[in-house]
């Protein structure tokens, strides 16, 4: 009898062990190998700066209220409220000790596109690698080189303040298993080059969907609601939908371009909330990119 029980117990332990191994295998951090990043080529700093603005780096990583040149000091320190707790934005200035000055391109690229930190740990998806995963190694290399040219800051950001179970980094592996994918957000039947460029900017570096797509209780995008708008993930109010059936449905592509350039709607209302900073970032992009974004927003499913 005792031996039967011990056999059952042994099997039980084995099952649990196997489960743990499987769970680990399914949810462990998965960076690209060093070699993946070896062919990024010679960095193009001017293009890196465009990606800096397209990616909205300054809107989180610059100090609160920063304007002008201060927007290029990636000191971190801003608080990003969320339903899971408060994230404190890290320093990504070139400081070798508290910034990313000591990082390799592989470390930076794996943070950007795999959500894996420099020590192989999962990063929280409040850092929008779920969007940046679509960026090409060349673009990652250009951006990394540009960030290295910015002023160093010695600011040390506070650790995140998250409730249980979100404070367990391992749990991010489960989130990734459910929601992390580099697949296109929408399949566009007849996408010309301009629309595909817009898709890259909106779904990738621009990470527009991170606010403009509603999320479920686990922080994943609700399926079939790409860019449909929803509650403001950072607090009060809501974020408008930006598909052809949202409030910008009546805008022409030129209206969308003008809004991203100037912050004015066709009725001369202005951008508000977090979009104010986003618009100022987007105003740095070449007009052809803004036109591509507008074309893509006209091509996505109306929701």
């Amino acid at each position: 009898m005792a031996s039967t029980w011990s056999k059952i117990a042994a099997v039980g332990v084995a099952v649990i062990g196997l489960g743990a191994v499987t769970a680990w295998a399914l949810t462990k951090p998965e960076p690209h190998p060093e070699s993946f990043w070896a062919n990024a080529g010679t960095p193009d700093l001017a293009h890196g700066e465009q990606l800096f603005w397209a990616g909205g780096c300054a809107s989180c990583h610059a100090a609160t209220g920063a304007e002008g040149d201060a927007l290029k000091v990636m000191s971190g320190g801003r608080a990003l409220p969320s339903p899971f707790g408060t994230f404190h934005i890290p320093n990504i200035s070139p400081d070798p000790n508290v910034g990313i000055g000591g990082w390799t391109l592989a470390q930076f690229g794996n943070a950007m596109t795999r959500g894996v930190g420099p020590n192989g740990e999962h990063l929280y998806p409040s850092f929008p690698y779920g969007s940046y995963v679509r960026m090409s190694p060349k673009d990652i290399g250009d951006l990394f080189a540009y960030l290295k040219t910015l002023p160093a800051s010695s600011n040390v950001a506070r650790p995140h303040e998250l409730g249980f179970p979100f404070n367990i980094r391992m749990a991010v592996g489960g989130w990734k298993l459910l929601y992390f994918s580099e697949a296109p957000r929408v399949e566009l039947a007849s996408a010309d080059e301009k629309i595909r460029r817009g898709q890259y900017l909106v779904e990738g570096p621009g990470h527009c969907g991170e606010c403009h797509t509603p999320r479920n209780a686990l922080g994943g995008f609700e399926s079939g609601k790409w860019l449909a708008g929803g509650p403001n993930p950072e607090g009060e109010g809501k974020v408008p939908g930006i598909t052809p059936s949202g409030p910008i449905g009546s805008w022409s592509e030129a209206d969308i371009v003008n809004y991203l350039e100037t912050g004015f709607t066709p009725e001369y209302d202005s951008a508000g909330g977090a979009m104010v900073e986003v618009q100022k970032n987007m105003a740095h992009l070449p007009k052809s990119d803004l036109e591509a974004i507008a074309a893509y927003l006209k091509a996505v499913p109306a929701l």
């Binding site: 403001n232 009060e236 109010g237 809501k238 974020v239 408008p240 912050g263 202005s270 951008a271 508000g272 909330g273 977090a274 104010v276 900073e277 618009q279 100022k280």
Partner: peptide
């Protein structure tokens, strides 16, 4: 934008 950023909600 400077004012709407902080003081207007959708």
């Amino acid at each position: 934008g400077t004012c709407h950023q902080t003081y207007r909600l959708k």
